[in-house]
Amino acid sequence: MHTVDQEIVSATLTVAVPAAKVFAVLADPTAHSAIDGTGWVQEAVNQAPLTEVGQIFRMAMYHAKHPDGDYQVVNKVQVLDPPRAIGWLTGYDKGDGHLEFGGWIWRYDLAPLGPSETEVTLTYDWSAVPQFRREFIQFPPFGPEHLTNSLHHLAELVAGR
Rank of each mutant, 00 (worst) to 15 (best):
P18R: 02
I8C: 13
L157R: 12
W126D: 03
G143P: 06
F136G: 07
K21D: 10
A31D: 06
V53F: 11
Q138I: 11
A20S: 14
T30K: 11
H152S: 10
K65P: 00
Q72Y: 11
T148M: 09
T14S: 13
V79Y: 15
V74F: 01
A48F: 05
N46S: 12
V9F: 00
H153T: 01
H153P: 01
V45F: 02
E135L: 14
F139D: 02
A48C: 04
A159P: 00
V9Y: 01
K65I: 08
Q78A: 15
I8M: 12
V120M: 02
A128M: 15
A44H: 08
D109K: 07
Q55I: 10
D5L: 13
A111W: 00
A16I: 01
Y71C: 05
P83R: 11
Q131D: 14
F136L: 11
V9G: 10
W88M: 07
E52D: 12
R84I: 02
L151H: 04
I56D: 03
I56A: 07
G91I: 09
V25P: 00
Y71W: 15
F23G: 05
E119Y: 00
P82T: 07
W104K: 01
R58T: 13
K94V: 05
N75S: 14
G54S: 04
G95D: 13
Q42V: 15
M59G: 08
V74Q: 03
P112G: 09
M61L: 08
D28V: 00
H2G: 01
T30I: 08
T51G: 12
K21A: 13
R133L: 15
D28T: 14
T123G: 10
V15G: 00
M61R: 09
G114V: 05
D125L: 08
